[in-house]
Nucleic acid binder design. Structure first.
Lengths: 339, 339
DNA sequence: CTGAAAGCGCTAACAG
DNA sequence: CTGTTAGCGCTTTCAG
């Protein structure tokens, strides 16, 4: 294996100084004659020179990379399709603009030990927080204290932080859309089935449902369950049905949970939506699987990622975030599961 | 915002040389008295010093980071649950050992333009290739030519490459398990529904099915379709049914496709598995949704990621990969959709 | 138009 | 036990 060529080896080969090579590499037109440029380019080609990003970073203090910390109690932190699509959007938009994405999955409370935090080698950090609002704010403050631009996903803005941008889809608005859909028929009692981990987006959905249901005099109960497998969801909802009887509406925190709910209702001889209306949340391109088709909202996770990347790129360019907050509107996906 | 402290500022504060601080930071016991160590640690604490990874990298030529290139024609390259779980396993195992994961989604043929390739800042590269075998081999050679340790996912080994490790689940073996399950009843004709993008893992599955079916005198047809949405899958399989009639068995390239197949069969008044047996592939923790429950194999995607990370860590430690190939065995998930 | 040189933050060899 | 120093590869200023 030959040594990797450096500016110096190229300079040697082309009989010029490394400063000249640097100019050519960086496409700096001023101060290089066409003739030398050609020669240098030939040497670069011949040696197969590729610039060393580390040397460049050390000098320029820019790393062409963005860090993403996903705070999640599950080691399979990427299992959730929302996260998955967000990462894809972020990564694509970054890659397209010559930036890399440094991915970290971190357990709640372990953020300060993560090497993303302990050693900086990125131009900006993205944070996908989970936990209670207090825990999330603590995480935001920790990362913000690093003095790097920060993008926070899915959470509501915090006042006292500098150089931070909040990007999320309009989860409360999406919930209102679904609630209004459901309310096309008269209802008395609704149940929302949520995971036992507090997620900011879910808080917003609860708020959206509550707003509409309360205004229409509909009682809203919350049922919490472990969402890691459909078994746990089933027993969670089954417990509620046994204790409180059958409600008019079941809204799932997401599509997976809603499908599990439809399953157990069907198993008990109930018909959706005749006996119970069911709605999901966060439809993704590949989710036309349930019967009856789920009434849900189309997730903007991918766009959230793209928006964040664009905001970061722009921030790096101009020294500040243009907007402090981006809220992407959601769209109803009508289905046969409601109303 | 205060300047970020460096070795120098800590040294100044503690009235020692930067060499001494460096030793303390790196936990080098030899040559530092307990007293100075304490003083230095106090200075580090007070200044909030964190080592700069870039300076360290430049000097030590190690980056504590691994690159992952996912070659996929879809911009939503992370949509596939296999990829998702693989990334999670890889990322967790790497993070746990102080390594970062630099993620790149790249379009087929664009690999050489990717900045992961063009600028090295990682200690090893992982490649998740797609396309024809030729295209995949070209990609492997390209990356291998960088002179960095390389891990290739899901593909069969290539002979002439140095410092490469191949990690995959036993897709052919998994297909044989399913085929044998299906063959518990007599069959004449089977159809495999596959995506129009060639994936190495799918080639292996086809080979596994073919082996068993051929040995038992069962004809195996292939139907190709766009797998990006269930609509396209439905029309693909519908076309086959119209042209060739109903086969005894339909095997899907993955669970999503199999579920779409069950849908369309049911819609046509056919009963699974009475009229047609259906099998899937790559069950993930959250895939108990179809009725009848799908006969499939449990994917080892997460373990593939973990295995790769461990292999890389070991390679970086010892200078060479211990094994050239890791093939993780698959396990049947029996279901009611077959036999 | 071209080159010499300083220095980004760090490690490690070597000198004291 | 501690400090001095020479770079790692690069960008950029300043002189020629």
């Amino acid at each position: 294996m030959r040594e990797r060529p450096t500016l110096r080896s190229v300079a040697l080969k082309a009989n010029v100084s490394i400063a000249t090579v640097s100019k050519v590499v960086n496409g700096i037109a001023a101060g290089v004659s066409e003739a030398t440029r050609k020669e240098v380019e030939a040497a670069i080609e011949e040696l197969g020179y590729r610039p060393n990003r580390v040397g460049r970073s050390l000098r320029s203090q820019r790393h062409q990379a963005v860090g993403l910390a996903i705070v999640d109690p599950s080691p399979r932190f990427l299992a959730d399709p929302f996260t998955t699509n967000l990462v894809a959007g972020l990564c694509n938009q970054l890659n397209t603009n010559g930036f890399g994405l440094l991915l970290y999955g971190v357990m709640p409370g372990k953020l300060s030990e993560s090497s993303l935090i302990r050693q900086s080698e990125v131009d900006a950090i993205c944070l996908n927080p989970s936990g209670t609002r207090d825990e999330r704010e603590a995480a935001m403050e920790l990362v913000s204290g690093l003095g790097q631009p920060l993008v926070v996903f899915q959470d509501r803005p915090v006042q006292n932080l500098q150089d931070v941008c909040f990007v999320r889809q309009d989860d409360a608005g999406g919930a209102e859309l679904l609630a209004n859909e459901v309310m096309k028929r008269p209802r008395r009692r609704a149940v929302m089935v949520i995971a036992d981990i507090p997620w900011p987006a879910v808080e917003n959905r609860v708020a959206g449902f509550r707003k509409v249901f309360e205004a229409r005099g509909v009682q809203l109960d919350l049922v919490t369950c472990d969402e890691t497998d459909s078994q746990a969801i089933s027993s969670g909802i089954a417990g509620y049905l046994d204790d409180h009887g059958v409600p008019d509406v079941i809204v799932g925190q997401n599509d997976q949970i809603a499908i599990a709910c439809i399953d157990i209702l069907t198993a008990r001889g109930l018909e959706v939506p005749r006996d119970v209306a069911v709605t999901g949340y966060n439809a993704f391109p590949f989710t036309g699987l349930s019967r009856p088709a789920l009434a849900t909202v189309r997730s903007r996770a991918y766009d959230v990622g793209v928006t964040a990347a664009s905001a970061i790129l722009e921030r790096l360019e101009n020294g500040r975030f243009r907007q402090r907050e981006y809220v992407l509107p959601l769209e109803l996906v009508p289905g046969n599961s409601a109303p």
